[in-house]
């Protein structure tokens, strides 16, 4: 145990850990938003609701079908991703030729519908979801106590984020994706089905949100409001990182989570606004975001 500025290491590292956990969710969600934004040029307002649905699918799998955490980690993103594919096919694809703001408005409407439905069914208080037995307990690191599940969330989300980044920047499929982002008409002319790629990209982004939801379920309770609570912070993260930048969204996600955690230690009153303040400063200095290309 030691102290910095009158704050015990326990408290400091505890908040840092919470910051990293939040950062992991910010990173996964803003990564999904960035991938979707790159391909479809829309801000997916439903992202928060789909994150919430991801958590609820895990909860329902457990409570209705007795399927546990590990399968939920696989099944929930698939189920929710399929919902995303439906949304894209049935609605978003019809708006492609219109102003992109319509896409934003549509996804906003969908977010309201989803949130309303789940609140109607499950109320606004959270439902508990137990940490899987394999990951319960924790490790004492000497300067702090590290719950195993939290360590798992941070590691796993890092792996997912880096994996996604690698897939987009260093594989053939990823290069198609990037090419289609730059010039869809040309890529289409090369015989690649861009329309299907857009649909699958949306589904993938949604799957990422659902995966974050499953990871979040044991930490926060499963709550119909969990999506709308986090999504606006994630929007700010996306603005700070630079819209559409893959690596940028991952780094800013984690960094801002930590920044938020540290603020909670040193100046708790500002902890919920700090991200927005950083956003304002970044906008003044670099209007296109830290990692964004200037338009």
């Amino acid at each position: 145990m030691f102290e910095i500025l009158g704050i015990t290491s326990q408290a400091l590292f505890g908040q840092l850990l919470i910051g990293l956990i939040n950062g992991a969710f910010y990173a996964m969600l803003s990564l999904g938003l960035a991938v979707i934004f790159g391909m479809l040029n829309i801000i997916n307002f439903t992202h928060g609701a789909l994150y919430m649905i991801g958590a609820f699918v895990a909860w329902m799998l457990l409570n209705y079908l007795g399927i546990g955490y590990w399968w939920a980690l696989v099944l929930s993103p698939i189920v929710t991703g399929a919902l995303g594919v439906l949304i894209e096919r049935l609605m978003l694809s019809r708006l492609r030729d219109l102003d992109h703001l319509y896409g934003l408005l549509l996804t906003f409407g969908l977010a309201l519908i989803f949130e309303g439905l789940f609140r109607q069914k499950f109320g606004s208080s959270g439902l508990p979801y137990r940490i899987p037995a394999e990951l319960s307990g924790g490790t004492n690191l000497g300067f702090m106590f590290l719950p195993n599940y939290r360590a798992w969330v941070i590691t796993f989300s890092l792996v997912v984020c880096i994996g996604t980044w690698y897939a987009i920047e260093h594989t053939r499929l990823g290069s198609y994706l990037r090419a289609a982002t730059e010039n869809p008409a040309l890529v289409q002319a090369f015989g690649i089905n861009v329309s299907r790629m857009i649909t699958l990209t949306y589904g993938f982004g949604v799957g990422l949100a659902a995966l974050a939801g499953v990871l979040a379920a044991p930490i926060y309770q499963v709550n119909p409001l969990m999506g709308s609570n986090i999504i606006i912070v994630v929007f700010a993260v996306v603005v700070i990182g630079g819209m559409g930048s893959i690596l940028g969204s991952i780094i800013t996600g984690f960094a801002l989570g930590v920044a938020e955690g540290l603020t909670k230690v040193f100046y708790p009153e500002a902890s919920s606004t700090v991200i927005f303040v950083i956003m304002a400063i970044v906008l003044l200095i670099r209007p296109s975001g830290l990692f964004g290309r200037s338009s």
């Binding site: 906003f108 409407g109 309201l112 519908i113 989803f114 309303g116 109607q120």
Partner: peptide, 10 residues
């Protein structure tokens, strides 16, 4: 109310 609002939006 939320659901109806959302539906009108869509």
């Amino acid at each position: 109310v939320l659901v109806v609002q959302g539906a009108i939006f869509v």
